[in-house]
Amino acid sequence: MEVRVLRYFIEVVQERNISNAAKRLHISQPTLSRQLMDLERELGITLFERGHRQIKLTQEGYYLYERAQEITGLVDKTETDLQSQKIISGTLDIGTGESTAIQPVMTVIGNLLKEYPDIKINLVSGDSDLIYQRLNNGTLDFGIIMGPEKLLNYHSISLPQNNIWGILVRKDQPIAKKKKITPQDLIGLPILTSAQSKQQDIFRSWAGSLIDRFNFIGQYNLIFNARLLVETGACLALTYENLINITGTNLIFRPLTPTITDQNNLIWNKNRQLSNVAQVFLNRLKEVQ
């Protein structure tokens, strides 16, 4: 299974058409079709459902597409890192959830981009599961993990600012009249919470036995889409302060009391050597801690 052929496969999937993909790859359509058929024979699977004008992947095709992106991304990153050891250049790959508390990290990155114009930045937004996965497979240099996590397999630095939990709710909802939200205030109300906080069960110690009377109607990965649902008035969302700009909207944020905060930790894999640019970033971040 050649990396070159995986790149062909990715291009076909993204173009959804073999002819268009062949043009972009500057090869003939018969050559591209033959390469894909050879790949199917090599793997002993069917990648595409035949008979469709546009490309439609089989289940095995979807799996290979996801893995092919990881493989080619890792190859590209490795080549770039190897070619960039004598100068400060290359790509810095960082994965993080949503939080305004990561601003110090972005300030360091911003300064590096100004100082070293050959540096590129790849910011990946996602929850802790995605970040751990990509740190372990080598497609991320660093991850920023929020909340209580077991970090035994990773080096880590605690970032100075914490995240403050509260609710995002429409202004015309009765609970919005309260300045701070107690566990009793949330009993029976429809609540969205983040998938990560639900897994960590961080609200149980705050609410005690009252949490069993909470009406968790669902969970979200990133807050933007959840905000759109909150705007309908169908629910409220447990989230961090200042994640959403609510100026001029019909939404308001109210903090929880007693206060719940989450720490932010920058982590990186103990078993992987940092690239040149990643090491420079880490040194700069330590200087401002």
Rank of each mutant, 00 (worst) to 15 (best):
E2Y: 04
Y8L: 05
Y8G: 09
E11Q: 11
V13E: 02
E15Q: 15
R16I: 01
I18M: 14
I27P: 08
Q29M: 15
P30N: 00
L32P: 01
R34V: 11
Q35L: 06
Q35R: 09
Q35E: 08
Q35F: 14
M37V: 12
M37D: 08
D38I: 07
E40R: 10
E42L: 15
L43G: 11
I45G: 05
I45C: 13
L47D: 05
F48W: 05
F48C: 03
E49R: 13
R53H: 12
I55K: 02
K56C: 03
K56R: 14
T58F: 06
L64M: 12
L64F: 13
L64G: 10
T72W: 06
G73H: 04
E79R: 03
E79S: 03
D81F: 02
S84I: 03
K86I: 08
I87L: 08
L92R: 11
I94S: 07
G97V: 13
S99A: 13
S99M: 02
T100V: 15
A101H: 06
I102W: 03
P104A: 10
V105A: 01
I109N: 08
L113Y: 11
L113V: 11
L113M: 12
Y116E: 01
D118Y: 07
D118E: 14
I119Y: 01
K120I: 08
I121M: 12
S128N: 03
I131C: 04
Y132C: 01
Q133F: 09
N137Q: 07
D141T: 07
F142D: 01
M146S: 07
P148S: 12
K150G: 08
L152G: 10
N153H: 03
N153G: 04
Y154D: 00
I157R: 02
S158M: 08
N162G: 00
W165C: 04
W165I: 07
G166Y: 05
L168C: 02
Q173F: 12
A176L: 02
K179Y: 04
K180W: 14
T182D: 14
P183I: 08
Q184E: 14
G188C: 10
L192T: 13
S194C: 13
S194G: 10
Q196N: 13
S197Q: 14
Q199C: 02
D201H: 07
W206V: 02
G208F: 01
L210D: 01
I211T: 11
D212N: 12
R213K: 15
I217P: 07
I217L: 05
I223S: 07
F224G: 09
N225G: 02
A226K: 02
L229S: 02
V230Q: 01
E231G: 03
E231T: 06
T232S: 07
L238H: 01
E241V: 05
L243F: 11
T249S: 14
I252W: 10
F253H: 10
F253G: 08
R254I: 05
T257V: 15
P258T: 09
T259H: 06
I260C: 07
T261R: 09
Q263I: 10
N264Y: 06
N271F: 06
Q273P: 13
S275F: 06
L282M: 09
N283E: 15
R284D: 09
R284E: 15
Q289D: 12
